[in-house]
């Protein structure tokens, strides 16, 4: 078994955390098929870093960090592929998502056009997950000062976006 995880350990980790990974990815990506892709990718990464996962004081922060990273990458890849399709499968997208989640996802998609990867990850944890600044620091592993600066940048851009004509029309 790879990187020091026994089959039973891996199966147990999957049973425990795969629903969280799927739920986060599904909320961000809006499609079941993409969310399952993300689950596979996240667990591939977990296999490669079993030591880091075990060393986490809060393993869920690892799950959040890697799932967010993987999902945002998929989102960007899809944005490139679907550049002409502004609204992908709205019926599937709305299924099971709360209005707040849909609004957060639309905001993140808009922010994805302007923000770099780090800021977008922080925006996701802030707007979609409602994490406190302290929790974001734990998840992303950056200093409190850096997270504070990034959050400010994200909030300013989000405010500008929501004031732009047409914002919310797709929500």
């Amino acid at each position: 078994m790879a990187r020091g995880l026994s089959a039973s350990e891996l199966a147990e980790i999957y049973e425990l955390y795969a629903p969280t990974v799927f739920g986060r990815a599904r909320t961000l990506l809006g499609r079941d098929s993409d969310a399952w892709d993300a689950v596979q990718e996240v667990f591939c990464r977990l296999l490669e870093s079993a030591g880091a996962f075990r060393a986490e004081a809060r393993p869920m922060t690892y799950i959040y960090r890697v799932t967010t990273h993987v999902s945002l990458n998929l989102l960007r890849s899809r944005a490139l592929r679907d550049v002409t399709t502004r609204e992908p499968e709205p019926s599937e997208e709305q299924e099971g998502a709360s209005p707040g989640e849909v609004e957060a996802r639309n905001l993140l998609r808009a922010l994805a056009r302007d923000l770099d990867e780090r800021a977008l990850q922080i925006a996701t944890l802030h707007f979609m997950d409602g994490l406190t600044q302290e929790e974001i620091v734990e998840v992303v592993g950056l200093s409190r000062k850096t997270v504070g600066k990034e959050l400010e940048k994200v909030r300013v851009r989000a405010r500008q976006l929501t004031l732009e004509p047409g914002w919310g029309a797709s929500s």
Binding site: A2, A7, L10, Y14, A18, F22, D32, W36, Q40, L47
Partner: peptide, 26 residues
């Protein structure tokens, strides 16, 4: 949602795939 997801075929298939991947990597 967790209970419902664990009952789906996709969940079992995903688990089988990742276990197979880990086995192949050892």
């Amino acid at each position: 949602r967790g209970v419902a997801l664990r009952a789906t075929p996709e969940f079992s298939r995903g688990k089988a795939r990742i276990l197979a991947h880990a086995e192949a990597a050892a």
